[in-house]
Design a protein around this nucleic acid. Structure first.
Lengths: 302, 302
DNA sequence: AATTGTATATTATTGCATAAAAGAACAATC
DNA sequence: GATTGTTCTTTTATGCAATAATATACAATT
């Protein structure tokens, strides 16, 4: 109860919660894109990347400036004042996560089977002390991720997918089917520029960035890699299916510990895969992918 | 504008819309289960099957009685008064469909690319003349089916999956990957009772019922068959993925014409597949399924 | 030409009172 | 013993006004 009381109060204060959240989104984006101190933060570009208009972006930028992470001059826009991987940037990134507190709690409770399969909104409102509006946003999001669905009458039902202890293994088995198959599809092709971009990113991760990344970011990066590749099949059903598995795998990821060495090897395999893809040896690539997905992964990461 | 005006008026009249809808659900269930005139309609059983409590079921039953499709005696419950496949039952079934009018219109507009990829709720409310509440239920449903997603700011975005002309082919390619693979999974097994139930149903369809079924029902029946089988892999990710493809394929189904002969052959293949599955020759079954899914299907049905 | 600044229009959310729907418990009946 | 009838409680939906957030258009600036 105290948690949400304080969050409600926070929103009354200055520096609106929303603006801080937006600031976090911008910072996280900058980080993903590998931006450095001094790089320009162009409003329209950020807006496009985040599927928003310039208005909210502007709020985020102002919040960043207030936090000392960006510097703005009239008519000259904003510029990164700190490296997004630096420790100074952490609070802004954490603001996004803080916003996800309830989400994470629910996820934890479901994973640990502390919640019944069927729940009513009223129950959840009481349990997590959120307003109906907040809860509904949360449920919509979880529904979009596919681990809860509305019942015909009152209430919602959690998907068996999540609570089961084998879920992790099953997700792996499923990926081991669709990912190689996608690469082996007749029309599969990956534009050179995508390969270059992916390689750059994996390279950056491999050469040091890894140490500075959070579990969440490492996981996200892995997902993006695999999703970009499966996109090459030109069949959105493959991509969609992978996305859904990944959004559920993300729940487990929080529980897993960081095995940096395993991850290093993992990223090396990604780079190797890119080499094979670049030369269009797709059968071989499919094979490589299959083996890649069969490795025992301590950290539940791929 | 007139469409929704009249529907709003209808709800003012007696015989509430909701009750009629429930009546339709019960009738559709009875039909799926192959019930006949004189069969008892047990409240709790219906409630369980429809994931509701007895209260709404009761409303539906009363509506059925009012429509002359069920007969009830005090303390003795209700009994089917008409065969659910008879023409007398059609209006009740149509009531469910009528409720889906807007859904169907939207689906049609998206399939025909008459709508932009990004839309706001306000636009949709104007275009289809529905209240915000109605629209939100609709959007939630479509989101659950996976062909629209909420944007971070205002508005929603339709999935590329649907509007593309290749969607049908792509759906098929995807199924051709996951369904055989599911059968080929190490732990695959199908309980004898499921096989029996499926065979009974397919048999019934094969021997005549087919002629009386609507496109929607035929499609539904096919989906159920394949979903039951993929469930045998014991991996919910396969089932989930198939369900999603199917919910999108259903959109195309309405456009396709009925090729009863092709369907007959199709059902025969289903029966053949069950034979192989029964003897646990899973490798062979996977193969059969792969071939089954590769046949050119005029009616877009499987 | 690209980008930012600003004003304005559009769109969506929230809170609240009221209404409707669904669920649960238990008695009555077959 | 299973099922229906009945009543009561809980849960959710809806409409509306106020408020907040987002989008858009265009002028100003580099």
């Amino acid at each position: 109860m105290s948690a949400s009381d304080s969050s409600r109060q926070r929103s009354d204060k200055n520096g609106s919660e929303r603006a801080e959240h937006l600031a976090g989104l911008i910072m996280a984006l900058a980080r993903r894109e590998g931006m450095k101190t001094g790089d320009r933060l162009i409003e329209q570009r950020l807006a496009d990347a985040l599927d928003l208009s310039r208005a909210p972006i502007r709020l985020g930028l102002k919040a960043l400036e207030a936090a000392g992470l960006a510097r703005g001059e009239p008519h000259r826009g904003f510029v990164l004042a700190k490296n997004p991987t630096s420790s100074a940037a952490q609070p802004a990134l954490a603001a996004v996560r803080r916003n996800e507190q309830v989400y994470a709690t629910v996820a934890g409770d479901v994973l640990a089977s502390r919640l019944p399969a069927d729940v009513t909104e009223a129950e959840l409102m009481r349990r997590y002390d959120v307003t109906r509006a907040e809860l509904q946003r949360l449920l919509d999001r979880i529904a979009a991720e596919g681990w809860i669905a509305r019942l015909p009458g009152y209430g919602w039902r959690f998907a068996e997918t999540v609570s089961s202890p084998e879920a992790q293994t099953q997700a792996k088995a499923f990926r081991a089917v669709i990912e190689p198959a996608a690469i082996a599809q007749p029309g599969f092709t990956l534009p050179q520029e995508v390969i270059v971009r992916l390689r750059e990113h994996q390279q950056r991760v491999f050469e040091g960035e890894l140490e500075k990344m959070t579990i969440g970011e490492i996981f996200h990066s892995g997902c993006e890699f695999h999703e970009e590749i499966i996109r090459g099949a030109g069949n959105p059903f493959f991509l969609e299916a992978l996305r859904r598995v990944n959004s559920i795998r993300r729940l487990f990821a929080y529980r897993s510990f960081a095995d940096r060495d395993g991850m290093r090897r993992h990223v090396r395999e990604h780079l190797r895969l890119l080499d094979v893809l670049e030369t269009r040896r797709y059968a071989e690539a499919a094979d490589l992918m299959a083996r890649h997905l069969q490795r025992p992964l301590v950290a539940g990461l791929s």
